[in-house]
C-alpha cells in the first residue's frame, strides 16, 4: 500500500513540475539566447545618442546607477556605447554570415553537380582560402575595398564560406549517389527537379546551423579587425573601437572601459554559439530522441 502511495505521489509531483525533455530545454535555451540578442538590438534603438555625446563634466566616472558601465575620458556613457556597438556588430554579423552561407551553398551545390572542371576550381579556391591565415585575408580584403562597415562585411563574407562549402559539397556528392536519387533519375526526373525536391531539403539543417555558427565568428572578426584599425571608423560605437581605445586607459585603473564591453561581447557570442549547438542537436538524427 505504501508503495502505491509513493508511486502516486511521485506521479503527482511529475504532473505539477513538468519534467523538461531534451526538446523543451533546447528550445528554452534557444529562446533565452535569442531574447538576449533582441534585447541588445531593442536597447540600442531606445537609448538616445545624447548619452554618447562628449561631455567633459562626466568624464572618467566609475560604474554607478546612472552609468552602469561607467563613462570614458570624453564623458560618453559606456553602457550606451557598448549596446550600440554590439547591435552594430550583430547587424554586420547577420549580413556577413548570411552571405557566407549563400556563397557556400551555391559553390557547394555547383561543385557537386556542375561537372569536374567547376568542382576542381571550387576545391582549389577552398584550399587557397584555407591555406592562408584567416585574419590576413580578411584585413587584405577589408583594406582593398576601402575599410568601414562595407569592408568588414565583404571581408568576412569572402573568408568564411570555405569550410561550409566543403561540408555542403560532400553532402551533395553523397546524396547524388544515394539510391533514392538514382531511382528518381531512372523514373525520368530532370536534374533541376531532383536538386529541388531531393537534395535541397537535406541541406536545410546544414544551412541554418552553418549560419548560426558563423555568426559569432563574424562578430569576433569584426571586432578584431576594427581593434587592429582596419575596420570601422573610430567615430562609430563599435566593440572593436571601444576595446582598442580602452587599452590605453587600462593602466590608469579605468578597468570598466574594457571589462563590461568585453563581457557583453562574450555573452553575445556565447548566446549565438548555444543557439547553433542546440539546433545541431535537434537536427542530428543520432540523438534526436534522447
Amino acid at each position: 500500500m505504501t508503495e502505491i502511495l509513493t508511486v502516486l505521489s511521485k506521479k503527482k509531483f511529475i504532473n505539477i513540475l513538468p519534467k523538461l525533455n531534451r526538446r523543451h530545454s533546447t528550445l528554452l535555451r534557444v529562446t533565452f539566447s535569442s531574447l538576449i540578442l533582441l534585447c541588445i538590438i531593442a536597447a540600442s534603438m531606445l537609448l538616445s545618442n545624447d548619452r554618447i555625446a562628449t561631455n567633459f563634466d562626466l568624464k572618467n566616472l566609475p560604474p554607478s546607477m546612472a552609468h552602469p558601465f561607467g563613462t570614458d575620458w570624453l564623458g560618453r556613457d559606456m553602457f550606451t556605447r557598448t549596446i550600440k556597438g554590439l547591435s552594430l556588430s550583430i547587424y554586420i554579423g547577420i549580413i556577413a554570415s548570411l552571405s557566407s552561407v549563400i556563397i557556400a551553398l551555391i559553390l557547394g551545390m555547383g561543385a557537386a553537380t556542375l561537372g569536374k572542371a567547376f568542382d576542381t576550381f571550387v576545391t582549389w579556391l577552398v584550399d587557397l582560402f584555407l591555406g592562408m591565415p584567416h585574419l590576413v585575408a580578411l584585413i587584405l580584403i577589408a583594406f582593398t575595398v576601402g575599410g568601414g562597415a562595407k569592408g568588414v562585411i565583404i571581408g568576412v563574407a569572402c573568408t568564411h564560406w570555405t569550410s561550409l562549402t566543403r561540408v555542403i559539397r560532400a553532402e551533395v556528392l553523397q546524396l547524388r549517389s544515394a539510391e533514392f536519387v538514382q531511382i528518381s533519375r531512372q523514373m525520368g526526373k530532370k536534374p533541376l527537379w531532383i536538386a529541388i525536391h531531393h537534395i535541397l531539403p537535406h541541406l536545410v539543417p546544414q544551412f541554418f546551423i552553418g549560419f548560426v555558427l558563423l555568426f559569432p565568428h563574424a562578430i569576433l572578426h569584426e571586432a578584431s579587425i576594427t581593434f587592429l584599425g582596419f575596420g570601422l571608423s573610430p567615430h562609430k560605437p563599435a566593440i572593436g573601437v571601444i576595446l582598442s581605445e580602452s587599452m590605453k586607459y587600462l593602466s590608469t585603473g579605468m578597468w570598466w572601459l574594457a571589462f563590461f564591453p568585453g563581457l557583453l561581447l562574450f555573452v553575445t557570442v556565447r548566446a549565438f554559439d548555444s543557439i547553433g549547438e542546440n539546433l545541431r542537436l535537434l537536427f542530428d538524427p543520432h540523438n534526436a530522441h534522447e
Partner: peptide, 15 residues
C-alpha cells in the same frame, strides 16, 4: 526520361 528497365534494390530503407 522514364527507363523501361526498372531496378528494385535489396534495401528499401535506402531507396
Amino acid at each position: 526520361g522514364f527507363n523501361p528497365v526498372q531496378l528494385i534494390f535489396q534495401h528499401p530503407e535506402k531507396a
